[in-house]
Design a protein around this nucleic acid. Structure first.
Ligand SMILES: [Mn+2]
Ligand SMILES: [Mn+2]
Ligand SMILES: [Zn+2]
Ligand SMILES: [Zn+2]
Lengths: 135, 135
DNA sequence: TTTCACTTTAGAATTATTATAAACTAGATT
DNA sequence: AATCTAGTTTATAATAATTCTAAAGTGAAA
């Protein structure tokens, strides 16, 4: 991914490509593999990586803006912190509680044979499978 | 369920049956259906139900003690609060985000046909399926 | 009964997140 | 290019959930 794509991505979401957003977007999206993170962990990595300091509030703002624009998804993980995911497609996760690490599972790698029907007038929006690992 | 069962349950878990624990245990476990709750929601219900006031810290302490003893499980739900569950068997959930309500799905009502193998030297501890509902 | 480890409690502390409001800036308008 | 302004960043305060602290209370063993 190149800078022009980042700018397109921001502009197409009606997000002004500010210095901070471009830096965070490059950090998040210019990579090949899925990246799972909390705002805290992202903030630490940004401090290490970059010279200019981005306010923590800006990291929160930006991550939420990217999520609202559909560039990030949220993953439920045990614990008090909110996890985000650069993989916004429908997929599942392994979770290694030893390392607190999430690992993607492609949607096609899990096939559910039997599933109960949704209750009274409700429909199924999506199905998330979360596989806890042990040693 | 009767009071004697509650006392047994507490004693067998090496938890002294204090007034507060017995009251909370009766409230949680003397019911037919699964009960899903947060500490905040439980606390509110306890205040309504009972005359004696139990300190919020005690509700936290007690819920954690019950969880450690295996009498409660924790459920991951989107949001910042921790959800607990009186159903400690292996099972799954529907989640209705409109009402913020969890609905149990029996483990036998979901059959997974294909599942990826666990990564490098890890094993699968358990599989949680979370089905989000919409209208 | 006496004793004491366990428990409860009010309040302080901590952690994650959101709100506030003043200073700044991308990009449109002149 | 200079001006303008809505959107953005930032430091800081506020809020919300949870945990910690340490003093007072209590179940139950002896
Ligand atoms: Mn969580
Ligand atoms: Mn949660
Ligand atoms: Zn993922
Ligand atoms: Zn349940």
């Amino acid at each position: 991914m190149k800078k022009i794509d980042i700018l397109k991505k921001l502009r197409s979401s009606r997000l002004r490509p500010t210095k901070q957003r471009v830096e965070i977007a490059k950090f998040l999206f210019e990579r090949d593999k899925t990246f799972h993170f909390t705002v805290e962990s992202l903030n630490k990595l940004l401090i290490k990586k970059s010279t200019s300091r981005i306010a923590l509030a800006t990291v929160y703002n930006t991550v939420h803006a990217f999520k609202a624009a559909g560039h990030l998804s949220e993953v439920e993980v045990r614990g008090n912190k909110t996890y985000f995911d650069t993989n916004v497609s429908n997929h599942h996760h392994f979770y290694d509680s030893e390392t607190a690490e999430l690992i993607d599972i492609d949607a096609n790698d899990i096939i559910i044979q039997k599933i109960p029907k949704a209750p009274n007038g409700k429909k199924i929006k999506n199905v998330e499978v979360f596989i806890n690992l042990k040693n």
